[in-house]
Design a binder for these strands. Structure first.
Length: 789
DNA sequence: GGTGCTTGTCATCCC
DNA sequence: TTGGGATGACAAGCA
């Protein structure tokens, strides 16, 4: 596949199969020639030749090192901590976007990757691809307008595969520089995820049951966040691994590892079963790109599917340690199998050889890809086979996508799961249909695991609704339905009424309610087709009344016979799907599912009633929870307000004390000033001129220039401050309601009250201070008045 | 048997 | 028009 031999071949064909580092190589042939094979890396004394640009681009370590290194220093001696076992796969990954991991090298690879700064290997690869496609689309827009990855993904969605999770995580346009160091952005996203997924701190409700409900809800949210939050991947995965220890490595759980995790690489699950090469789809992708230039039809889907199966390296290590004996081989599915480097156990020499051949003969191996296309099984097929090995292979592609997209939702549900049902792979074909709700994404949300986990709780257990039971339908009879619910059976469709685990609102069905179900509907369709071929297994979905059936019938005949026709008492509704499907499918999928079957009006009524009740049940639970939250919030607000009021009251009392002291001081100072005024009238005049009233500048001619004294008396609420010189001058302040009387004129004293009240702005030098006092007093009184009232 | 709590359901409104 | 969410009211089970 040497590009030298195929100069006309688009460069992106080559780069599309390699790691993002090679984006540097694809710019032009000249530059590529400049950077090829110019560095020798010494790993444990062994020489490994590599491209300077590749090294620099794929590793922060090399990037920094080579930046300062001259062309005359073609040898890089890696530290001892970098082993050949760990470095070789990484270098191979840099060229092929294929990371081969096994139990022997994974630790070394992780150490090397961490040391070299090769984070987000998968992400960088996806970004590379997207950037490539985007740039390519931009370049060819005038001639061909090739579909961008986003549009392809959109088309993919429009085609019905609207799995929200089946998306490349780099749907955003790549940022400049994000190709080489995408971890910055990814870390940001991770942080946001972590923040947004933080389980809120729940205030425990007062009521015991609600408290229990909230506790479980909080626990669930924590669990969910741990699953959705990258930073807590390890812990959650540990739980997962622990739970799956009994069954070995749970592939579905592995597949459901969040894709946004740092230091995560996608895992080709097929490697768990066959330690050989896969990536047929990747080859297919490459071949399409190579042979048809911009034919990317299947690429985004493959991208999406492969993105659905990432697994964290650390998680892999844990799995390796705990349960897995398989050789794990990470495969981005974006690479071809062209390079012989991709043998799982790559000897260093082989690698050198291969990678030199890779340099010189990249194009040569391309033809081999086509030959190998049919050999390898894609991630889709294999994972699907792993998950649903009983399914026929005639629709393996499509359905593998479906089930691959499904699988994570089993993980997305809280760590608890049905014992023995957590792995789809364990399902029998019958389970797949009759128990389809078990494999149903949302059904996990309603799994009565909490019941099983809390066996002491005397709640009504919810039988496996996925196994439809006979249901007596009493259409349009609320009473009857109420009996159905409250009877011993309660049952076939009621949740575990512990208010917690079985509470739909407390479980992640809302998080899962969108996309997976559409695929599930497709599954249903497929299942339906299958079962149509072998005879529709008309499942009797009939609500049983268990031991109280006689009582129930009595109750019907006693009190409820008026509310519905008698003939409906014993009417049985046979439904071809489970209760979970009725209640949990999204609207479109639900309608789609209904249209698949020919249902009678009774069946439709029953289905719609059940669905409505289910929805309303959940809504009621949410509503009550909200109500309780509101009450709690209000109580909290009240508590805060009471505390604040206490604080304000204390502050006000302190202010009163301060005000009293201020008045005393002011009065005393006024006395002093008045005495001095009496001694030196001229100074008083100058004082007036220096401190004019801000409202009426300049001394009022009617005011005597020589006030003898100012007597301020605060008469409000017994805070009376009298000056010792009442006889000399009077400045009476009555703070309440602006009853302020300031008399600075000793002569004539008889005018003081009226004149000052009518013209408060003519208070001269003391007016400023008096205004302040007035203001403060008014503030005090106005604050106190409402309290008195 | 009365009471309080919890939960499911219905009716209704609204989007 | 239909579906669904929100919510008050009611009924039943349970301790």
């Amino acid at each position: 596949m040497s590009t030298e031999e195929k100069p006309e071949a688009p460069m992106y064909v080559y780069e599309s199969t390699v790691h993002c580092a090679n984006i540097l190589l694809c710019l032009n042939e000249q530059r590529k020639q400049d950077v090829l094979c110019d560095v020798t890396v010494l790993v444990e004394g062994r020489e490994i030749r590599a491209h300077r640009a590749v090294l620099a681009a794929c590793s922060q370590y090399f990037s920094l090192l080579l930046r300062s290194q001259t062309e005359n220093e073609p040898v890089i001696n890696l530290p001892q901590k970098i082993t050949e076992k760990g470095f070789t796969p990484l270098l191979q990954f840099a060229y092929t976007a294929k990371l081969l991991l096994n139990r022997d090298n994974i630790q070394d690879v992780m150490c090397c990757a961490e040391f070299l700064g090769m984070h987000n290997l998968e992400d960088s690869c996806f970004r590379f691809l997207q950037a490539q496609m985007k740039s390519e689309a931009d370049g060819m827009q005038t001639s061909q307008n090739p579909p961008s990855p986003q549009s392809l993904v959109q088309n993919h969605h429009d085609n019905g595969l609207e799995d929200a999770n089946v998306q490349p995580n780099d749907s955003k346009p790549p940022l400049p520089g994000s190709r080489l160091h995408p971890e910055t952005e990814q870390l940001k996203v991770t942080t946001n995820l972590h923040q947004s997924d933080q389980a809120p701190a729940f205030d425990l409700p007062r009521y015991p049951k609600y408290r229990k409900y909230h506790q479980v809800l909080a626990k669930h949210n924590t669990t969910t966040s741990s699953h959705s939050s990258t930073s807590s991947l390890h812990g959650s995965l540990q739980d997962t691994v622990t739970s799956s220890d009994a069954q070995g490595l749970n592939l579905s759980k592995v597949k459901a590892e969040p894709a946004s995790g740092e230091e995560c690489v996608p895992l080709d699950l097929s490697k768990l079963e066959q330690d050989g090469l896969v990536g047929g789809k990747g080859s297919e992708m490459e071949m399409e790109m190579e042979f048809e230039g911009r034919q990317l039809s299947s690429t985004p889907i493959e991208l999406a599917v492969s993105k659905r199966s990432p697994v964290c390296l650390r998680s892999l290590v844990k799995k390796e340690v705990t349960s897995s004996d398989h050789c794990l081989t990470a495969d981005l599915q974006l690479t071809s199998r062209t390079s012989p480097l991709q043998e799982p156990q790559v000897a260093p020499n082989d690698f050198q050889k291969d990678y030199q051949a890779f340099v010189g003969g990249l194009g040569v191996t391309a033809s081999k890809t086509a030959e190998k296309l049919t050999d390898g099984m894609s991630l889709k097929s294999l994972s699907f086979e792993r998950i649903c090995s009983q399914e026929s292979e005639r629709e393996s592609d499509r359905r593998s996508v479906i089930f691959s997209s499904q699988a994570p939702y089993h993980l997305a549900a809280p760590a608890h799961s049905y014992p023995g049902e957590s792995c789809l792979g364990q399902e029998t074909p019958d389970d797949l249909w009759a128990g389809s709700s078990q494999s149903f994404p949302c059904s996990q949300a309603l799994s009565p695991t909490s019941v099983s986990q809390e066996p002491t709780l005397p709640y009504r257990r919810r039988p496996k609704s996925s196994c439809p039971v006979p249901i007596k339908m009493c259409p349009r009879s609320s009473r009857a339905e109420s009996h159905i619910r409250t009877s011993s059976s309660c049952s076939s469709y009621s949740y575990a009424e512990d208010g917690s685990g079985g509470s739909p609102s407390s479980l992640p069905q809302f998080e899962l309610s969108t996309s997976p179900c559409s695929t599930m509907a497709r599954c249903l369709a497929l299942e339906h087709q299958e079962h149509s071929m072998s005879g529709p297994p008309k499942i009797k979905c009939e609500k049983s009344y268990d031991t109280n059936s006689s009582d129930e019938s009595e109750s019907f005949s006693d009190g409820d016979s008026e509310s519905f026709p008698t003939k409906e008492h014993t009417q049985e509704v046979k439904l071809p799907f489970s209760i979970d499907q009725i209640t949990e499918l999204p609207r479109n999928d639900f309608q789609l599912m209904i249209k698949m079957y020919t249902l009678t009006s009774d069946q439709l009524d029953f289905i719609h009633n059940m669905r409505r009740r289910s929805k309303n049940r959940v809504a009621a639970q949410r509503c009550r929870k909200r109500k309780l939250d509101c009450i709690q919030n209000l109580e909290h607000e009240i508590h805060k307000l009471v505390c604040e009021r206490q604080k304000l009251l204390t502050e006000r009392s302190q202010l009163k004390i301060c005000m009293g002291e201020l008045w005393e001081n002011f009065s005393f100072l006024s006395q002093e000033v008045c005495r001095e005024e009496q001694l030196s009238p001229g100074q008083s005049q100058s004082l007036y001129n220096l401190h004019p009233d801000p409202v009426s500048p300049g001394p009022d001619p009617r005011i005597s220039p020589n006030p003898t004294s100012i007597d301020i008396t605060l008469t409000s609420h017994n805070n009376v401050v009298s000056s010792p010189g009442l006889n000399d001058c009077q400045a009476i302040v009555e703070p309440p309601h602006s009853h302020l009387r300031v008399d600075r004129e000793a002569v004539p004293p008889q005018d003081t009250v009226t004149s000052e009240r009518s013209e408060p702005s003519h208070m001269g030098s003391s007016s400023v201070t008096t205004d302040f006092c007035l203001e403060m007093t008014e503030k005090c009184t106005t604050e106190e008045l409402p309290e008195r009232n």
